[in-house]
């Protein structure tokens, strides 16, 4: 068995002494598209914060390819929730994508041809090349999400972590993003996505993690995505309609 791309052991996270995530453990194999699903307040975003090093755990550890995550942050690429930035900020789409190269060019080195190529390729793969000079707030929600995805692509890395990339985007963007994510997976990258639309879970993800402060289940989507697990995750908030084995499930 290969080394897990990510292994989380006994992770506990809290704000102001209130535990948000308790004793969470799971492992993810490389080259998979992983969904993290759970109700509001389940600690999904908190978990992501800890994974990308923006929050210190109270207990437990996170290993990336067998090493402590703190030593391997450069292998990890993070796409924050779209709402987390200021749309009034005077920055263009192109400049945001260029930020993806900051890690490799450092403080003062100029952008080399290879950096410029990475930026151009990233923008092209999510079809935002002609938006490069637009101020970020002047773009639509879907376009903004593509800009952040392009920044992540320009950054590179082995593990991509995305917080609700489909929140507030149009259908065209959603399918464009999914295509990009699948392409990444097919290149052998690991992609972890916080997601909330149960209807698309089976379609998008190879591996599914159900989270509600604790891990309810983690494993191949087909095995984990069961009515019983979902009921445990969402409590009474989920309506499950079974029709000849085909399940249509909606969270409320």
């Amino acid at each position: 068995m290969t080394v897990s791309a990510m292994e989380v052991k006994g992770l506990t996270l809290s704000y102001d002494d209130t535990a948000v995530v308790e004793e969470v453990s799971f492992a993810i194999q490389p080259g998979q598209l992983v969904g993290v699903v759970g109700p509001n307040g389940a600690g999904k975003s908190t978990l992501i914060k800890a994974i990308v090093g923006a929050m210190k755990p109270d207990a437990g550890s996170i290993l990336l390819s067998g090493d402590p995550a703190a030593d391997k942050l450069s292998a990890l690429t993070y796409v924050p929730q779209r709402g987390a930035v200021d749309w009034d900020f005077p920055i263009t789409a192109g400049e945001v994508v260029r930020q993806g190269r900051f890690q490799s060019v450092g403080l003062l080195r100029r952008f080399a041809a290879e950096d410029r190529d990475a930026v151009a390729t990233a923008m092209k793969s999510v079809a935002i090349t002609d938006l490069a000079d637009r101020q970020i707030g002047a773009l639509s929600g879907g376009q903004q999400q593509r800009v952040f995805l392009a920044r992540a692509l320009a950054q590179g890395g082995d593990i991509f972590v995305m917080d609700e990339p489909f929140a507030g985007v149009d259908a065209a963007t959603e399918s464009a993003i999914v295509d990009v994510l699948r392409a990444l997976r097919d290149e052998g990258k690991t992609v972890i996505v916080v997601h909330h639309d149960l209807a698309t879970v089976c379609d998008y993800f190879d591996h599914l993690i159900l989270l509600n402060r604790k891990i309810i289940a983690s494993g191949p989507t087909r095995e984990v995505f069961t009515a019983e697990n979902l009921r445990q995750t969402y409590g009474g908030q989920v309506a499950i309609f079974t029709d000849d084995g085909a399940e249509a499930i909606g969270a409320g």
Partner: peptide, 18 residues
């Protein structure tokens, strides 16, 4: 300049890229 820009625009991203 680059650190200031990135951390002002998107602090979580800035932290994530070290």
């Amino acid at each position: 300049y680059r650190w200031l820009t990135a951390s002002s625009f998107d602090p979580r991203f800035a932290a994530a890229v070290g």
